[in-house]
């Protein structure tokens, strides 16, 4: 146990005598979930605190910063995807590729025939986000959903959609929940 170790014993565990040459640096990493847990929670904590501090200092400007960051991330990730004009297909592919970070499904209420809905001169698609690293970070830190960190996801999807389809879009947070969130992707 760590608590029973002396400082010298603790320091000793970092001295393995292994020699690394550049070409021998391992290119794969597969630690178990238990080994990753503390790292992941540390990143979540840090991310949560950055956002909290940003909100305290920048106020409403925090949303613009996080949106911009998410949008850049979305463009960056999606630039390697094949370009697709069909928005439904693009969203399905995006959900497949983002599996592990975000998973979402195209969603429609029972009374609607198609996923793409045009109402009051607005064309939109409902998206239900199931797995989301943002939601998990917020819940880890006891923070409210729908704030600046959610804006990164907003920017992310908009950036990715713009990159894949070449169409401009806007994402609206309709509802947030502990297990899934409903977003409205408005197409321009």
């Amino acid at each position: 146990m760590m608590a029973e170790m002396t400082v010298e014993e603790m320091n000793q565990q970092f001295k393995t005598g292994t020699v690394f040459r550049a070409e021998e640096i391992p290119i794969s990493c597969s630690p178990s979930a238990k080994d990753l847990e503390q790292t992941l929670h540390g990143v979540m904590k840090l991310n949560g605190l950055i956002i909290k501090s940003l909100e305290e200092i920048a106020g409403r400007g925090a949303n613009a910063v996080t949106y911009r960051a998410g949008k850049k991330f979305g463009h960056e990730v999606a630039k390697y995807f094949r370009k697709i004009e069909d928005i439904e297909e693009a969203l399905r592919e995006l959900s497949y590729i983002l599996h592990g970070q975000y998973t979402f499904e195209l969603w429609k209420p029972e009374d609607k025939e198609n996923y793409v809905v045009t109402e009051n001169g607005e064309t939109f698609i409902y998206l239900v986000f199931h797995d989301c690293i943002v939601r998990q970070t917020l819940r880890r830190n006891g923070m409210e959903q729908g704030g600046p960190l959610c804006q990164t996801l907003y920017g992310y999807v908009v950036g990715a959609i713009e990159e894949i389809t070449g169409r401009r879009a806007k994402l609206e947070i309709v509802h947030t929940g502990p297990n899934a969130c409903l977003k409205k992707l408005i197409l321009k």
Partner: peptide
Amino acid sequence: MGCLSCHEICPAQALEHRGVYPSKRNY
């Protein structure tokens, strides 16, 4: 859509959902 928001806020814990996709809980 299985957001389970109602499930969380119900003060009487009177709701039960079946067939919901449970999202990852790495936190």
